[in-house]
């Protein structure tokens, strides 16, 4: 998601409630929320994530399209880049890195957009937990379901899906986004028509 994408968040974010989340998923989502808060401090749309391998956080990422002027620099992409760089520094091969991704779990405060969901499928991540839904761009059920486009077993094209659970600490994720839109988004383009304020 990018700067001005969330206008009207009543429609945009749908919360599934926090019931039934394991202690682990709450603990890791809390760390993702911390990342989102860092994004907010830098006047970015507050979305953050962590990637977990064997119950350990191995990468973090936060949304930074404004700073980079690249609207594809979502939290997930930042964390993925960090891992690819680290693993290659460690001398891992293509195959070893693919194996590692297939053992990783992503915790992200907002449902991955279509682009990020596709990226996660390309990398073959094992599982995704997200906070609030992303009705406009969501690639894990809201607009498209790229997580289940195949099965978790690679198809002929090597295409695979991943397990995906929404609604983990959704209310925290939403309130961060609300505070972003309330403070105003200085980077959004000027509206095509003047905004009409109700009298």
């Amino acid at each position: 998601m990018f700067a001005d994408c969330g206008l009207g968040f009543q429609r945009f974010y749908v919360c599934f409630g926090d019931l039934g989340c394991s202690f682990d998923s709450l603990r890791f989502m809390e760390l993702a929320i911390q990342e989102a808060k860092l994004a907010l401090q830098r006047l970015e749309v507050p979305v953050g994530c962590v990637i977990v391998e064997n119950a350990k956080v191995i990468a973090t990422g936060r949304n930074c399209p404004t700073e980079t002027r690249n609207a594809t620099r979502h939290a997930e992409m930042e964390a993925i880049d960090a891992l690819l760089e680290q693993w290659q520094r460690d001398g891992l091969s293509e195959f070893e890195i693919a194996t590692k991704f297939s053992n990783c779990i992503l915790y992200v405060t907002c449902e991955p957009c279509i682009m990020c969901a596709a990226a996660l499928s390309i990398l073959g991540i094992k599982e995704v937990y997200y906070g609030c839904r992303n009705d406009k761009f969501g690639g894990c059920g809201s607009v498209l379901s790229l997580n289940s486009s195949a099965s978790e077993i690679p198809s002929i094209h090597g295409q695979r899906g991943f397990r995906c659970t929404g609604g983990v600490m959704a209310s925290e994720a939403i309130s961060l986004l609300q505070s972003f839109y309330e403070q105003g988004n200085p980077n959004a383009p000027k509206p095509h028509r003047p905004v009409v304020h109700p009298k």
Binding site: M77, E94, I97, I122, L123, G124, Q159
Partner: peptide, 28 residues
């Protein structure tokens, strides 16, 4: 062939590799 990067030999002396760096992403 987005899903087939893991079966390719991407590494070289000079550069890292990155399975998501499709042409459009690099241009952006």
């Amino acid at each position: 062939h987005p899903w087939q990067w893991s079966q390719q030999k991407l590494s070289s002396q000079t550069y890292y590799w990155h399975p998501l760096r499709h042409a459009a992403m690099v241009a952006i």
